[in-house]
Amino acid sequence: MTLRSRLDASWASPRQTGVRVALVAVVLAVAAVPFLLLLLFVESRWGPLLELDNGARDGLHSYALAHPTFVTIMRVISNSGSGPAWMGVTIALALVVLVRRQIRLALFVLVTNAGSSLLNGFVKTAVNRARPVVNHPLLHEPGMSFPSGHAQAAVAGYGVLLFVVLPYVRGVWRRVVLLVAVLMVLAIGFSRIALAVHYVSDVLAAYVLGLAWLVAMASVFHVWRRTETRAAQ
């Protein structure tokens, strides 16, 4: 057996798989703490969080009303992270991956993004938090507020894009792609607060929940790939 074969076998061994599953469980448990804290603070109407949420809502909304160009930019950024936009990206990315005969990766793309949307809708319904109320609203969004669907979709969606694209990017361009993805995730979350359709806590909770979901799905598909690799040897 060659050194490469031994390394692959070691990486795909049940022991190594068990270690990785345990690490993922720890990551998800750690991610659950800030999300549950935010949920607790929202449900109990904790003073400091209310002050942060209401202060950001009122301050950004006042600024937006006085700066139409700012509103236009925020609308464009927000629309880039909408459900229909991500649906188009998800389908296109899955088709590209399927053309390359990477069926497992295509399933990862579809399940991660679609599952994130379903999870967000479930949590929204369970928490049932009303959206911010302002004078002269800039957008009229249906549904509940906690957590932000746009922000969660951005974390899951850009995370999936990085999983697919980064293996083909080299050198300084890897850092550029990573930076663009992070900035877009932050910009989409900020745009939802600036347009007064979400509170700061909605966006923060969405980031945590989206990241936890992304890690869970990446781990599941990684173990699946390694299990099939081991079975084929």
Rank of each mutant, 00 (worst) to 15 (best):
H67N: 14
A85F: 09
V96K: 04
S78V: 12
V111Y: 00
L93I: 13
R104F: 02
A92L: 14
I103H: 13
I77Q: 04
S82C: 09
L60R: 04
L93H: 01
G47C: 04
N79H: 12
G47T: 02
W86N: 04
L118M: 03
L95Q: 05
A92F: 13
R101H: 15
L95G: 04
S116G: 15
S78R: 11
L60K: 05
N54M: 15
T72K: 11
L107H: 02
A114Y: 07
G121Y: 03
F70R: 06
M74N: 15
T90D: 04
L110F: 10
G47D: 15
D58P: 01
A66I: 03
L60T: 14
E51P: 01
S117T: 08
R100T: 02
V76L: 14
I91L: 15
G55F: 05
I103T: 15
V89G: 03
V111K: 02
A85G: 00
G55L: 05
G88R: 07
N79M: 06
V109G: 05
A114C: 13
V111F: 09
N54V: 12
G47E: 10
T90M: 14
L118Q: 00
D53N: 12
N113P: 01
A85R: 03
L95M: 12
A64Y: 02
S116A: 11
M87I: 14
L49R: 10
Q102N: 14
S82P: 04
L60I: 09
A106W: 09
P48D: 10
L110Y: 02
L50P: 01
V111L: 14
A85Q: 04
A114Q: 07
I73T: 09
R101D: 05
S116Q: 12
P48T: 05
I103F: 14
G88E: 11
T90L: 00
A56I: 04
V109F: 02
A66M: 03
R100N: 12
A56G: 07
N113K: 02
L118V: 15
P48I: 10
S80T: 11
N113W: 00
V111C: 07
W86P: 00
I103A: 10
R101C: 06
R100V: 02
L52Y: 09
G47Q: 13
L107D: 06
R101I: 01
W46T: 03
S80Y: 01
G121R: 06
V96Q: 11
F70P: 02
L52E: 05
S117F: 01
W86G: 08
R57S: 04
P84Q: 08
A94M: 09
R104W: 06
W46K: 03
S117L: 00
A66L: 11
L93Q: 07
S116K: 10
D58V: 05
P84W: 09
V76M: 13
G81F: 08
P84L: 09
A94F: 08
V109Q: 09
A106V: 13
A114E: 07
G55N: 10
N113Y: 00
S82M: 06
D53F: 00
A94G: 10
